[in-house]
Design a protein around this nucleic acid. Sequence first.
DNA 1: TGATACCCTACTGCGCAAGTAGGTATTCGA
DNA 2: TCGAATACCTACTTGCGCAGTAGGGTATCA
Lengths: 149, 149
Amino acid sequence: MMFSTKAEYGVRVMVELARRGGDQPIPLAEIAEREGLPLAYLEHLVARLRKADLIESRRGAHGGYLLAREADQITMAEVVEALEGSIAPIECISGLPDGSVVCARETDPDHVCTTKLLWTRVRFSIIRTLTETTLADLIPTNRKQPAAA
Amino acid sequence: MMFSTKAEYGVRVMVELARRGGDQPIPLAEIAEREGLPLAYLEHLVARLRKADLIESRRGAHGGYLLAREADQITMAEVVEALEGSIAPIECISGLPDGSVVCARETDPDHVCTTKLLWTRVRFSIIRTLTETTLADLIPTNRKQPAAA
DNA sequence: TGATACCCTACTGCGCAAGTAGGTATTCGA
DNA sequence: TCGAATACCTACTTGCGCAGTAGGGTATCA
């Protein structure tokens, strides 16, 4: 297994928010019950989504959460990254802000990390897939024809 | 992080075996020292690689390991799968032998799992990348021009 | 003013990755 | 024939992070 339940649950929450849409905020308790997930745990995940500006919150009675943008303006790369942290197939490969890739084992400039090529490719293909898929692609009613993978 | 060090270390071992080539078996201790990895731990990993028929072993003095096939006949999908087990981005998505994908949460036929589409895509793109990359692609001396990712 | 909801921090249990340890079996060279 | 070198196997240990719980505080509405 590669992603934790943070990504799994969090994506479900996002889908649920998108599926209902509208301006009415949706209480997290409703989603938790409908999906059969523990509310207290979802609260942690929603906090991450909110900090990443993917959802907005309304406090108080009749409060809840709603999407910060239209569903087709939210890529799953943003969602997964907000939930899981930086996407890296293995520990030593991580993306820098400038887009380059570093390998923690490459200290000696002579000793080029041969496996880096593999993990870089894997990372790239995951990110590309997640970026090409928007939240709107996952909504059943919204039958947009997604670009073939 | 998504793959464990099993994949990381195991791939390094495979690369090292391929880099040296020849008919002389290579002792694991040599690889462990060169890569700075714990020998006793590597033994667990090579056991998996051997059971998957990716490497062969020679016991006794001057024994060691060698590739079971030519490096360009070994895909990284085989290697990673042997080390990590079946490749699935999240728990509930796993591939059946017939190639179909099941979602553990899809008990009720009415309740189609909307997130399944996403994880299926991710899984497919990972597997495709790993399958397209052979061990030979990772060997620096063997300057094959790999197909662009 | 009370109910409803978000919000925050701290704590816990547990499974598993990562590594250790110690032994056995096999093969080679001298 | 023996000892060194190596693969091979099983069991054990340790640390950490995921997954979840607990309990409060704060904002908002009717």
